[in-house]
């Protein structure tokens, strides 16, 4: 059996360097690789490009990298919850490429699947389509989008085993499965790491072949961005 386990987050992030491109799973603050983000902050790598649906909030998630001016470029679909992000973007310190959410997911999936490019109708006729090839299929216009290229992918899963197999939970799944195997090195952090053989193969969402390094995160804050509850009658 092939083992993917590394001892800790330091080992998991070995090899990250200035100027690299990272993919990070998560939607809002749900399902973000908290431990890897903390390590990227500690390593203080600079000039990085981050592919992530959102940019965290001011004091959590990718917002922590923004605070230290580590990010050169963000590729995201929605960045509305982060004042520091908006400030850096409007002042021109931060380069930002906003792309449709489904296109972002599919560009990850294409990289994972060895598909260099694909056509999608999303963004046709908008500024997203500027400079891109367009083509009509079945009477409808589409634009050509390319697979991402990234050095590291940072994934958060609920459970994993030493063979790198992953199981996600709830809507913390989001972009995480699509980013597995989409970068040169996929690092998965999990809340619970078990020996291979303990997870039922029927339950695996992502097979270990897409994961190079796996470790159990030391702790998880799992912060809620927008707590909304209803009253009991």
């Amino acid at each position: 059996m092939i083992t993917k386990t590394v001892a800790n987050v330091q080992e998991a992030c070995k090899g990250v360097a200035d100027g690299m491109t990272f993919m990070l799973g998560g939607f809002g603050l749900s399902g973000i690789p908290e431990n890897c983000i903390a390590q990227l902050v500690a390593l203080n790598v600079k000039g990085v490009t981050c592919i992530s649906n959102n940019a965290g909030v001011d004091d959590f998630g990718l917002g922590l990298l923004l605070q230290q001016r580590q990010i050169k470029k963000m590729i995201s679909s929605y960045v509305g919850e982060n004042a520091e992000f908006e400030r850096q973007m409007l002042s021109g310190e931060l380069e930002v490429e906003l792309i449709p959410q489904g296109t972002l997911a599919q560009r990850c999936r294409a990289a994972q699947s060895g598909i260099p490019a694909f056509y999608t109708p999303a963004g046709y006729g908008t500024e997203v389509a500027e400079g891109k090839e367009s083509r009509e299929f079945n009477g409808k216009m589409h634009i050509l989008e390319h697979a991402f290229k990234a050095d590291f992918g940072f994934i958060k899963a609920w459970k994993g085993d030493t063979a790198g197999n992953l199981i996600f939970r709830g809507t913390a799944r989001n972009f995480n499965p699509n980013m597995c195997g989409a970068a040169n090195i996929t690092v998965a952090e999990v809340e619970e790491l078990v020996p291979a053989g303990e997870l039922d193969p029927n339950d695996i969402h992502i097979p270990g072949i897409f994961v190079q390094r796996i470790f159990q995160g030391e702790k998880y804050e799992k912060r809620i961005e927008n707590l909304t509850v209803r009253k009991r009658d």
Binding site: S76, S77, Y78, V79, G80, E86, M89, L90, V96, L98, I99, P100, Q101, G102, T103, T120, P121, A122, G123, Y124, T126, V128
Partner: peptide, 12 residues
């Protein structure tokens, strides 16, 4: 400048 999220995929 907040971004389009899924809106462009939805309307397209």
């Amino acid at each position: 400048v907040k971004g389009m999220g899924g809106a462009m995929d939805l309307v397209a």
